[in-house]
């Protein structure tokens, strides 16, 4: 009985070890705010190129730590421009491969229709109990939100109402479930083809915060991977840019 049992486990482990990574696959670490467009882009890319993609979504800071410790990503689509630059300096990314794939836009959004006016005056009223933002220490969209509130002179007033998500995906969750009445999220999360999917929002004027430059970089791991090169080329194409734009990003 016993040897049989262990044989089964060994076989199961062996079968799992085989066939995890293939040569035609590109593994991409994707900033949480770019989740929705990336799903669409990846489907389109797979169809036109024949390559396959494995996408991981999350906070850029976490990806940095993982890449530094040997995570098997070929490409990083970061939520900022600092992390790709840093990876290049540390020899973990291919020099000269960095480019801005999208410029993120910040929106003050509520799941309730008519709650947020198109001037953001709701912020000054302050008659809410929670305003959600991404952790400004970790997420560029969180830092941008703090910048906006500081410029409007409202930071001291609003700070007691802050609830912070670890990344922009979690921040969106707080607002979309109605647990926070409103919050600063990425426009791409709530916007499609020129209008809000639901709820109400104020697209924050870009002169109130520094541009959220989202850079892509080819990682050392993906240097010789043709699928990675093809995906980066695709992201710069007009077709890809049209999709990215539809989600409210700029260039």
């Amino acid at each position: 009985m016993k040897p049989n049992f262990f044989c089964v486990i060994a076989l199961a482990l062996a079968s799992m070890a085989i066939g995890s990574a293939s040569a035609d696959e590109v593994q991409v670490a994707v900033a949480a705010n770019f989740t929705a467009p990336m799903k669409k882009l990846a489907a389109d890319f797979e169809k036109s190129s024949g390559y396959t993609t494995a996408l991981s979504y999350g906070a850029t800071g976490k990806f940095y730590a993982q890449i530094k410790n040997g995570a098997p990503f070929d490409i990083l689509l970061a939520a900022d421009d600092k992390t790709p630059e840093r990876l290049e300096k540390e020899g973990l990314a291919v020099p000269g491969s960095r480019f801005t794939y999208a410029i993120g836009k910040l929106v003050l959004w509520s799941a309730r229709p008519g709650y947020v006016d198109d001037q953001g005056a709701v912020l000054k009223k302050g008659n809410f109990s929670h305003i959600a933002l991404a952790n400004p220490k970790l997420a560029p969209y969180g830092a941008a939100a703090v910048e906006v509130m500081t410029k409007l002179g409202l930071i001291a007033l609003l700070k007691p109402e802050f609830v912070q998500g670890e990344d922009i995906g979690q921040t969106y969750q707080f607002v979309s479930t109605g647990n926070a009445e409103l919050g600063f999220v990425a426009l791409s999360q709530v916007y499609r083809d020129g209008k809000f999917n639901s709820g109400s929002g104020w697209i924050v004027p870009t002169n109130l915060y520094s541009p959220i430059r989202q850079d892509a970089v080819l990682l050392a791991q993906g240097k010789a991977n043709p699928a990675a090169a093809a995906l980066l080329k695709y992201l710069k194409s007009d077709k890809a840019r049209a999709i990215i734009k539809a989600y409210g990003y700029g260039f």
């Binding site: 906070a59 800071g61 976490k62 730590a65 929670h130 959600a132 952790n135 220490k137 970790l138 802050f162 609830v163 912070q164 998500g165 670890e166 707080f174 926070a180």
Partner: peptide, 20 residues
Amino acid sequence: GNIPDKTRVVSVQIYDHVEA
């Protein structure tokens, strides 16, 4: 929601430190 002294417990604080 990561609020100091209300909901920011040690495990979350460690997570934040690592991410930063």
